[in-house]
Design a protein around this nucleic acid. Structure first.
Length: 486
RNA sequence: GGCCCCUUCGUCUAAUCGGUUAGGACACCAGCCUUUCAAGCUGGCAACAGGGGUUCGAAUCCCCUAGGGGUCACCA
């Protein structure tokens, strides 16, 4: 096993969204290829926004996607001693200092800077306070924060596996806060302390963190460490090129799951968002991606996510999935529609799998799969109105349906092929094209104009239901339609 | 606004060191297949942001402009 260590460090302020999932995925692909350790860390230093419920959901989503980790979760909220300890060290070394400026004072400085249309940097008011001055502030009841002393000159170089070397002028940075007045660390500090203490070797994270990296690197330098290697992966944007948010529809892994997407499809789709193995292959498994993944081939450009392609991939996986696996994945969707019992028996499950087999070809999501299966369970359906106009209004349709029902009833044995033969000879006898009989029959037994092969449906439904539905359709035509006509 | 990153079909992307009719996938359109709807197959539409260089030759290297994104919090 290699000593490469990566981490995925979500903050539990929401569900795992598609961008976070992709970041986790790239960490996973990278570390699994190299045989290193994948660490999960929960960045929960924001007490107000962090919720425990989200931690469980985050982990559940990762497991559902198949992204398992080796170590953790570590919780920043349980490591607070580490941060204050390191901060204290910086304080005694003179690399950090206490700042007594109030939030209001800071805000007003920021405001005037904005009015004068220049960028605001903390002016270093408390940079060189004397002991007496500090005492005075303390007596006033001020609670200090701790700021890192940033070099006034020089350049900080960030090495990034994807973007090369990115340089920042230290003079553009200010002495930022590492410990808040409530004693908790800020993200920029806690994250650095953790990455160093957990021996993280590669930080693979979203591009939005690139601008913060020089600050973190300066932290590491002050703490006497060298920073790990960075890889800032491009963002995933909404179709309108803006940052992803709720108003763009489904953005979390959980939502995609609820909409009937398979984890393999989601993974396959986001794998291709910002990375490509080269070549023409589009469909591949997590394991296949691990074999070919490299950070160097990750794109620099932000990707816009487009559910059309995801949907196409999902339909592909629905078609190709192992039947038992598909049955397991789709079951909750059937149960939600009330098609299947909470604890289905063996017979019910066998029938269910047969239904899946005949229906899976044309479903793009698991929701559609359940929608397309209702008439296998429920006799009480209405006829598609367009279909009624097309298939039920021709002359003598009701007689035709009754005739077909009679023929089927007269059969010694009943199967899909038997039914097909019966229909063929009936059409021949009546000198009808196959469609003339098949269309109204389809509508009669499913209520719809599209779907699986008619005789496959009959086969599954069985003779009794088929005949029954043919007859009641004939009745419907005589009653409803002829009444209208007269 | 300062700083940083980015720019190939509508979208995701490919194109070893500069030499390609700029390739694939989704979507879209047409045809084939077919009892319907899908699937599948075949074909079509469609891109190097703009302008300067460097070079025999630039999507590829350099510069400028424009556009997009990120970041500048006692959020992460």
């Amino acid at each position: 096993m290699s000593d490469v260590r990566v981490r995925f460090a979500p903050s539990p302020t929401g569900e795992l969204h598609i961008g976070g999932a992709r970041t986790a995925l790239f960490n996973y692909l990278f570390v699994r290829r190299i045989g290193g350790t994948f660490v999960l860390r929960i960045d929960d230093t924001d007490l107000e926004r962090s919720k425990e419920d989200y931690i469980d959901k985050l982990m559940a989503s990762m497991i559902w996607l198949g992204l398992d980790w080796d170590e953790g979760p570590y919780y920043q909220s349980k490591r607070l001693d580490q941060y204050s300890g390191e901060a204290e060290k910086l304080l005694t070394e003179g690399k950090a200092y206490r700042c007594y400026c109030s939030i209001d004072e800071l805000a007003s400085g920021r405001e005037t800077a904005k009015k004068e249309n220049r960028s605001y940097l903390y002016p270093g008011t408390c940079r060189n306070l004397t002991a007496e001055e500090e005492k005075k502030f303390l007596n006033e009841g001020r609670k200090p924060v701790i700021r890192l002393r940033i070099p006034e000159t020089g350049t900080t170089l960030v090495k990034d596996e994807i973007r090369g070397i990115v340089s920042f002028e230290n003079s553009d940075l200010d002495d930022f806060i590492i410990i808040k007045s409530n004693g908790l660390p800020t993200y920029n500090f806690a994250s650095v302390v953790d990455d160093l203490q957990l021996n993280i070797t590669h930080i693979i994270r979203a591009e939005e963190h690139l601008s913060n990296t020089p600050r973190q690197q300066l932290c590491a330098v002050a703490l006497g460490y060298e920073m790990p290697i960075f890889a800032h992966v491009p963002m995933i944007l909404a179709p309108d090129r803006s940052k992803l948010s709720k108003r763009h529809g489904a953005t979390s892994v959980e939502e995609f799951r609820d909409q009937g997407f398979l984890p393999e499809a989601l993974i396959n789709y986001i794998t291709l968002l910002g990375w490509s193995p080269g070549g023409d292959k589009e469909i591949f498994s997590l394991d296949e991606s691990i074999q070919t993944f490299s950070l160097q081939k990750v794109n620099k450009t932000a990707a816009i996510y487009d559910t059309a392609k995801l949907t196409w991939m999902n339909s592909h996986y629905i078609r190709e999935y192992d039947l038992d696996q598909l049955a397991g994945a789709a079951l909750p969707f059937f149960q939600k529609k009330g098609l299947i019992e909470d604890k289905p028996g063996k017979e019910e499950l066998d029938y269910y799998k047969k239904v899946l087999e005949t229906v899976r070809e044309r479903a793009k999501t698991l929701v559609e799969l359940a929608d397309a299966s209702t008439y296998f369970y429920d006799d009480q359906f209405t006829y598609d109105q367009k279909g009624v106009k097309k298939a039920f209004t021709k002359a003598d349709v009701s007689d035709l349906l009754r005739h077909a029902a009679q023929e089927l009833e007269a059969l010694d044995s009943f199967s899909g092929t038997d039914a097909e033969k019966t229909f063929e000879s009936l059409c021949e006898k009546l000198e009808l094209s196959a469609g003339r009989l098949i269309q109204p029959t389809r509508l009669a037994i499913t209520g719809r104009m599209g779907g699986p092969g008619l005789f496959d449906i009959m086969n599954l439904l069985g003779r009794e239901k088929t005949v029954e539905r043919l007859k009641s359709a004939a009745e419907y035509i005589d009653k409803e339609l002829n009444q209208q006509n007269s």
